[in-house]
């Protein structure tokens, strides 16, 4: 399996920080008012960030 690819669509992100807070491996950080992928290599593809993103902004491939 390829390394996971994590993406935040900034146009959709409203900055609720759910992904930042609940990612078990701290892949995200808030940068200004939006979440940003800062440690993609830490992703375990648990998918919780995508499932819990209310704004269809987080995608994990």
């Amino acid at each position: 399996m390829n390394n996971p690819k994590v993406e935040v669509i900034e146009d959709y992100c409203k900055g609720c920080s759910i992904c930042v807070e609940f990612c078990p491996t701290d892949v995200f950080e808030m940068v200004g008012f939006v979440a940003r992928v800062v440690r993609p290599e830490a992703c375990t593809r648990c998918m919780l960030c995508e499932l819990r993103c209310p704004d269809f902004a987080v995608k994990v491939y």
Binding site: D11, S17, I18, F56
Partner: peptide, 29 residues
Amino acid sequence: MAFDYEQYLRPGKLPHIWCPGCGHGIVMK
């Protein structure tokens, strides 16, 4: 794998009207 929500979403409607952190979007997914 990422679930393909787009297949069920009407084009051009996102971002939705719900406030930051509102759970309605999670329920819709």
